[in-house]
Design a protein around this nucleic acid. Structure first.
Lengths: 125, 125
DNA sequence: TTTGTGCATTCCTTGACCGGCATATAACCA
DNA sequence: TGGTTATATGCCGGTCAAGGAATGCACAAA
């Protein structure tokens, strides 16, 4: 479950779709294939990649193999993202300060649309 | 700068290395190639992919082309990650609660190490 | 103007991956 | 036992991306 395997697994749009699908609830392979418009073998292969990246876990139910999301590896991505998020928040803060020092009617009309993570320091709203 | 371009750009380990390198400071192509052990054309090509994903910006300085990191697109990744982060935090909280209900000397020694980003809002589930 | 430097682009080869198809495997059912 | 369902796997052809070598291009220095 290397970092590389994780990135590789999520690089494919079909696999991201599968992961998003499993966010809702665990599902058997056939259902995943249908929902994503994949053939059964294709879905099975993608699920294998996701399994090897640690992103999904399987549990056998009779003949079915129900795949469930395991969000734990996402933490590794999140950790990798951390310094960039900090940088991004810093530049947002800087923008905010610049805007605060600018007369209102000369400002660009855009405003912060809300990054998914709260800034580390109070940003003007 | 589609989402797909962003994932594709970051899926390559060399490109992630470049991005990490640029976290420190902007650099010209040759320096990036050296630092990452890439040939100059190879570095140039990777930088093109990163540029097209919006992750780096170029500024010309004499004959040099200095590449700087632009963390903005990272926000898109962060947004994609958000629901998984929530899920992960929920399971950590559940673990924490279970641990709190368990006599101390039967617990595993681990404790929540702190996900890099606090949950932004009470999960609207 | 010539030469040198820094970088981008093109061509080519190779390797990886994806999808489809056929088939193997395993569990359930009659 | 034989058949059906659900899934995995192997093979094949096509596509795409990466790396290397050679080259083109822009700018600067002499």
């Amino acid at each position: 479950m290397s970092d590389a395997a994780l990135w590789t697994a999520l690089a494919d749009p079909h696999r991201r779709a599968i992961v998003t699908l499993l966010l809702e609830r665990p599902r058997p392979v056939g259902e995943i294939a249908d929902a994503c418009g994949l053939s059964q073998p294709s879905a099975s292969k993608h699920l294998k990649v996701l399994r090897e990246a640690g992103l999904v876990r399987v549990s056998q139910e009779a003949q079915r193999r129900v795949h469930a999301l395991d969000p734990a590896p996402i933490a590794a991505l999140d950790a990798w993202l951390e310094p960039y998020r900090r940088l991004w928040n810093r530049s947002l803060d800087a923008l905010g300060r610049r805007l605060d020092e600018t007369p209102a009617d000369t400002r660009p009309p855009q405003r912060r649309t809300g990054p998914p993570c709260p800034p580390t320091s109070p940003a003007p709203t």
